[in-house]
């Protein structure tokens, strides 16, 4: 009797936990769906004045989030280009030297960096990059994303290499290969699935980050490709729309885009991980 009650309680509370996911998905979908159109992805954010005019005339707000999409892609691209190789090499170091004291220190610091609030990464990048460069820039934004991605890639690389059978590495070395070639030709290819999934998850984790970009990339109301100038990003736009009464209509379309992007990356990563594990 008591057992049944407990089981029911657990099932109900577990089901309740799932509610917010569907509530959030549902709300963003319902309110953002009719904003999505071709021009939403190809046009930059309207000025507050244009938006106000449109509202007064009872028309839908013109423009879209193209500046944010381009900015996000540029900053993410630069961050990935540096974070992936450095993260993989560092992860390989940790997997190859598990007993070294230095490796243990690096391992703890990686955990610490991973737990550091993103707003602090923003402050740091501001001090390191924005102040010396005398201005906000795409470079600064990508440094912030780089610092946040690094620990995630390190961890997934380290863990994937560590669970490879030892025989793989030994067989490679027994053929006379040196460590570098065995790592490059045998261990890393065998670990590719895990590392790739890790990179996808790292991207999905940082793509929605807002706080660190507020003090580094700042934002920009038109499509821009320069890396040394302020630039926009999708989450930054959502924050701007949230704070600007004239642009609130655009919040949901931008959020829907971001949410779908993040969740698709997440699901793809999990699916690939499952597929490659078999």
């Amino acid at each position: 009797m008591k057992d049944k009650l407990m089981l029911w309680l657990i099932c109900i509370l577990s089901a309740l936990t799932a509610v917010p996911l569907f509530a959030i998905l549902g709300e963003v979908l319902l309110r953002g769906y009719d904003q999505l159109s071709w021009s939403f992805f190809t046009e930059p954010t309207p000025t507050a004045y244009r938006a106000m005019k449109a509202i007064q005339a009872g028309e839908p707000i013109p423009g879209g989030i193209a500046n944010g999409i381009v900015g996000t892609m540029i900053m993410l691209g630069m961050a990935v280009v540096f974070a992936v190789p450095i993260g993989i090499l560092c992860g390989a170091y940790l997997a190859e030297n598990p007993k070294r004291r230095f490796a243990k220190v690096v391992s703890y610091l990686t955990d610490m960096l991973q737990g550091t609030p993103s707003v602090i990464i923003g402050i740091i990048t501001y001090i390191w990059v924005v102040v010396p460069m005398k201005g906000y820039s795409a470079i600064a934004g990508s440094v912030a994303l780089f610092i946040m991605m690094l620990p995630l890639i390190i961890r997934s690389t380290e863990e994937t290499i560590k669970i490879l059978p030892a025989s793989l590495k030994e067989a490679g070395l027994a053929l006379g290969g040196n460590r570098a070639r065995v790592m490059l030709r045998v261990q890393l290819p065998a670990a590719f699935g895990g590392i790739f999934t890790g990179v996808l998850l790292a991207i999905s984790r940082v793509i929605g980050e807002t706080a660190p970009l507020m003090f580094t990339a700042l934002g920009c109301s038109f499509v821009r490709f320069a890396v040394d100038k302020p630039i926009s990003a999708v989450p930054l736009l959502i924050w701007e729309f949230f704070n600007d009464p004239n642009l609130q209509e655009l919040i949901w379309g931008a959020s829907l885009f971001l949410l779908l992007f993040v969740l698709t990356l997440n699901i793809t990563a999990k699916y690939l991980a499952k597929k490659w594990n078999q």
């Binding site: 059978p165 025989s167 067989a171 027994a174 065998a190």
Partner: peptide, 11 residues
């Protein structure tokens, strides 16, 4: 050297 478990490189 040949090991106990057959270990062709999977990739």
């Amino acid at each position: 050297m040949v090991f106990q478990r057959p270990a062709p490189f999977p990739t």
